[in-house]
Amino acid sequence: MSDFFSTLLDEFPQVRAGLWVTVEATVLGSLLALLLSFLLGLMAGSRLLPVRGVSRVVVEFFRGTSLYIQLFWLYYAMPQLTGYELTPLVCGVVAFGLNYGAYGSEIVRGAINSVPRAQYEAAVALNMTPFHRMRKVIMPQAWVQMIPSFTNLLIQLLKATPLLWLISAADLMTAVEHVRSRTGETLVSYLLLLVAYFVLAYALTLLMNLLERTAKRRLGLHPGAGSLLKTRTAESAATAGGTR
């Protein structure tokens, strides 16, 4: 056991670097996912059938083919097919972005649809352009609705990052795996790893709850007391997991 901790201390630079890779993959992956969520989600609400169709096909494709396969395809198959190779981290970011972006687009679409039609009508009555209606009236209200579901998705994405270990991206899992193989302390290693991910997940949840609180205040709503530490409950868990 003491052997484990001395090894851990010994390997600390690698572990810290691994943690950084995990955070990087999470942040960049979720930024790409956020971008795609809005792009595909807005396309899904288009009046033009081809635009809606493209969005639908892309979303169903990336939701339907399993993240694991997408990652492996990017890492193993793409170089073979195109001769062009991505670094493991970029593979991870792209795969996470595409996969969770597809799920996120459903969140965006659903939130936009949940804004009462009366709000749209009031904007029409004030002669706003379609773009102006979306930007100033619909989207600010939809955004508040999206945050809890996005929080869920973000945690899911974080939980998917150990996949990077399988494509040798030197993430947190890779680093701790290394410590484990050096010491043979299986149980402690994995418990430590789980705790590390748990702490990361809670930190992200806290940040997102802060964001939600700010957004709610902007709408003149009162965020419930103590809501900052809450994790997601059934409704949002069902939207992130349930629509898969």
């Binding site: 009366a118 009508e121 009555a125 209200q141 003149g220």
Partner: peptide, 14 residues
Amino acid sequence: IGMVFQQFNLFPNM
């Protein structure tokens, strides 16, 4: 043309 609605429909984000 302008319109006033039964349910006011003010924008809650403003």
